[in-house]
Design a protein around this nucleic acid. Sequence first.
DNA 1: CGACTGCTTGACTCGGTTCAATATCCGTGG
DNA 2: CCACGGATATTGAACCGAGTCAAGCAGTCG
Lengths: 208, 208
Amino acid sequence: MLFAGLTEEDFDALHRPIDQLTYPPGAHIYSAGDPGEMLYTIRSGLVKLTRYLPDGTQRIVRLLGTTDVLGIEAIVGSDFEHTAIVLHEAELCRLPLASVRQLMRRNEHLYNELMARWHRALSDADRWIFELSTGGARDRVVNLLLWLAERNDGRSCQVFGREDMGAVLGLTTETTSRVMAELKRQGLISETGPNYFDLDVDGLKRSG
Amino acid sequence: MLFAGLTEEDFDALHRPIDQLTYPPGAHIYSAGDPGEMLYTIRSGLVKLTRYLPDGTQRIVRLLGTTDVLGIEAIVGSDFEHTAIVLHEAELCRLPLASVRQLMRRNEHLYNELMARWHRALSDADRWIFELSTGGARDRVVNLLLWLAERNDGRSCQVFGREDMGAVLGLTTETTSRVMAELKRQGLISETGPNYFDLDVDGLKRSG
DNA sequence: CGACTGCTTGACTCGGTTCAATATCCGTGG
DNA sequence: CCACGGATATTGAACCGAGTCAAGCAGTCG
């Protein structure tokens, strides 16, 4: 957790309490250009960060889940650079950036903790480019499913709308749907509930 | 510069001097998996960070130029995650990570400076996904040219081999070559020397 | 001068997009 | 409870852009 290593005393230094919030799918957390005054840590759920193309279509540039930090770029003083929207119902901790800055002054450990978050965000971005924006449509969909499963129990995952999946992968809704349907037919994934899938991980890896 | 704000005294604390190195195009700076013991800041030139696909082909996940920091991920203790190879002759400052860690303890400002670098790296990664991995071949090439020009004088740029350009954009060598040739024919770019181009920036933006 | 390497071009194939139709799910109100 | 409406998912067919394979074409360095 982000604030591991902080003392009781450190927390007392915050005048403003930390809010705990629950957002439903589709909820709008913040928009690109908003002044970044809040930081969020994700306790559960899934959030997309998007940017919009001139023609209005979106491209999702990052997916954030449990233990990820939302709005981290605002620490360096700038506005939010993306629009953040909930994909799977999310529990967030919200706290004012001013408090975080204040804590950083008191506690060196927090620097290292934040550094680790930056690092992880960047590694994820690399992986994104490498696994989700390279190769054929099938490879990309498979890699996304494996990525989601990895963050879950390793064998199953919850997906989201085909349109959003397409926006993650740089594919159209139709292509995404076709690939998903094809994977179902081949028995490599099986739907256990609406948007819940069990994966044949070995089979999927072999077919990629 | 990364070490702005450091005192003479801080530098004296380093037993090991900072090396200044010049690498020619094609030079290998480090490999994925190597223990990350050195940090490099780029004074000039261009460096690619690559990862390799199972079939041996590469995908370039980042391009680093003047003022960028190379090997920043090693600060959090891990090995290098990429292979770093020079594209345009590069002047680098090399210094041991141990020294950087030592400096960080003495100088809080360095934390903020590093934070800013992480931030920039992440913004670049987003932009990469958004501009260089989305849309048609022509759009991608144009965006790459504009990106390179932006880091130069805004109106011209130096490119590199078509194969590397393709690896940046997720395109084949042939497609990249075709698009470049087409842009030349349309007078949107003109070759002033081997791999040097003047850009018709407005025309390019309009055509994207 | 010839071999090598990187760039360009051509013809063909294939995969993903596009546009359009149908199907399925789900909430709402009759 | 069922019928309807809207949204999302799936499927189909035609098109087009990028990949593929293969061939020429500079430059460059022995």
